[in-house]
Simulated scan of single mutants.
Amino acid sequence: MRSARPTYLLAVLFTAVPTLLAFPGCTKTVEAPAAAQLTIVQGHLQTAAAGTLLPTPVVLRVIGTDGAPMGKIPVSFNVLAGGGSVDPGTVVSDANGEVKARWTLGPGAQVQTMTGTAPGLDPVTLSANGILPSDLVIAQGNNQTGKASAALTVQIVLRVTGGFNVPIPGQTVGLSITSGGGSISPQSAVTNALGEVTVRWTLGPQAGQQTATATAGTLGPIAIAAIAN
């Protein structure tokens, strides 16, 4: 007759295993991941006209101690140099660990910087190049001939540009008559997204050459000419 002792021992062993595993000294504690690093995904080292919105949003990512993206972490943006603004100022990371903001450059600086910060993490710094106005040119309407005391057929278009011929919006252009009488309307205008202002020149009653000048900040004056007959 086969002994029942081995079967008995196995039954005792399997009964004891759950008890052993449940013993406090045998339990391994797994720590939840914590935020470990803030990284730049996009938006660093952009170039745009000073005073304008950068074309690409700034995106940062929070990485956890397990190397995976981490959500629900507040990240704040602050301008360091150049003026300008960032919107929003603070945002919570999404399921991909990412936060997004739009950076508008300040109007008067070439080198501009901002930071992204999160609690307990090293900050990251982003830089941008602001293109400043360097040229004021006549894009249309110079050297026309028209009737004295009448508006010129073609309107005068002036353009403000910076390096690489980048149009500069938001620049105030002033105009004035320097000979011949007449008038320009408007006498002051702000450049549009193309860096341009458009004005109408009505010649004075004097026949012959008539002139006007235009300035934009420190740029100019440049001369605009017309012939009245």
Rank of each mutant, 00 (worst) to 15 (best):
residue 1 M to T: 06
residue 4 A to F: 12
residue 5 R to F: 14
residue 8 Y to I: 14
residue 10 L to Q: 08
residue 11 A to L: 13
residue 11 A to C: 08
residue 12 V to P: 05
residue 13 L to M: 15
residue 15 T to W: 11
residue 17 V to S: 11
residue 19 T to S: 13
residue 20 L to D: 14
residue 20 L to V: 11
residue 23 F to P: 05
residue 23 F to V: 05
residue 24 P to I: 03
residue 24 P to W: 04
residue 24 P to R: 03
residue 25 G to Y: 09
residue 26 C to M: 10
residue 27 T to Y: 06
residue 30 V to W: 01
residue 31 E to F: 10
residue 34 A to W: 15
residue 36 A to K: 13
residue 41 V to C: 06
residue 44 H to S: 07
residue 45 L to A: 15
residue 47 T to G: 07
residue 48 A to F: 01
residue 49 A to H: 03
residue 50 A to H: 02
residue 52 T to N: 07
residue 52 T to F: 08
residue 54 L to E: 03
residue 56 T to A: 05
residue 58 V to I: 15
residue 59 V to S: 00
residue 59 V to I: 14
residue 60 L to M: 07
residue 60 L to K: 14
residue 61 R to F: 01
residue 61 R to Y: 03
residue 62 V to M: 00
residue 63 I to P: 05
residue 64 G to I: 06
residue 64 G to K: 04
residue 68 A to N: 13
residue 68 A to L: 14
residue 69 P to G: 01
residue 70 M to I: 07
residue 71 G to Y: 02
residue 72 K to S: 15
residue 73 I to F: 00
residue 73 I to D: 00
residue 74 P to E: 02
residue 74 P to Q: 02
residue 75 V to E: 00
residue 75 V to P: 03
residue 76 S to V: 02
residue 77 F to V: 00
residue 78 N to V: 13
residue 78 N to K: 06
residue 78 N to D: 12
residue 81 A to H: 10
residue 81 A to S: 14
residue 85 S to N: 06
residue 92 V to L: 06
residue 92 V to Y: 08
residue 92 V to R: 11
residue 96 N to S: 15
residue 98 E to D: 10
residue 99 V to N: 01
residue 102 R to E: 07
residue 103 W to H: 11
residue 104 T to S: 13
residue 104 T to Q: 08
residue 108 G to M: 10
residue 108 G to N: 10
residue 110 Q to N: 15
residue 111 V to H: 01
residue 111 V to F: 05
residue 112 Q to F: 01
residue 112 Q to Y: 03
residue 115 T to R: 15
residue 116 G to C: 04
residue 116 G to D: 01
residue 117 T to L: 10
residue 117 T to I: 08
residue 122 D to S: 13
residue 123 P to Q: 02
residue 127 S to P: 00
residue 129 N to K: 03
residue 129 N to A: 13
residue 129 N to M: 09
residue 135 D to P: 02
residue 135 D to Y: 09
residue 136 L to G: 04
residue 141 G to N: 14
residue 142 N to D: 12
residue 148 A to Y: 01
residue 149 S to V: 08
residue 152 L to D: 04
residue 153 T to P: 07
residue 153 T to R: 12
residue 153 T to V: 14
residue 154 V to L: 13
residue 157 V to E: 05
residue 164 F to L: 08
residue 166 V to W: 01
residue 166 V to Y: 00
residue 171 Q to R: 14
residue 171 Q to A: 06
residue 174 G to K: 14
residue 177 I to K: 05
residue 177 I to T: 08
residue 178 T to C: 08
residue 178 T to W: 09
residue 182 G to T: 02
residue 195 G to Y: 07
residue 197 V to M: 07
residue 198 T to R: 15
residue 200 R to P: 00
residue 201 W to G: 03
residue 205 P to F: 00
residue 206 Q to V: 14
residue 206 Q to W: 07
residue 208 G to Y: 08
residue 210 Q to N: 12
residue 210 Q to M: 09
residue 215 T to S: 12
residue 216 A to T: 09
residue 228 A to C: 06
residue 228 A to T: 05
residue 229 N to T: 06
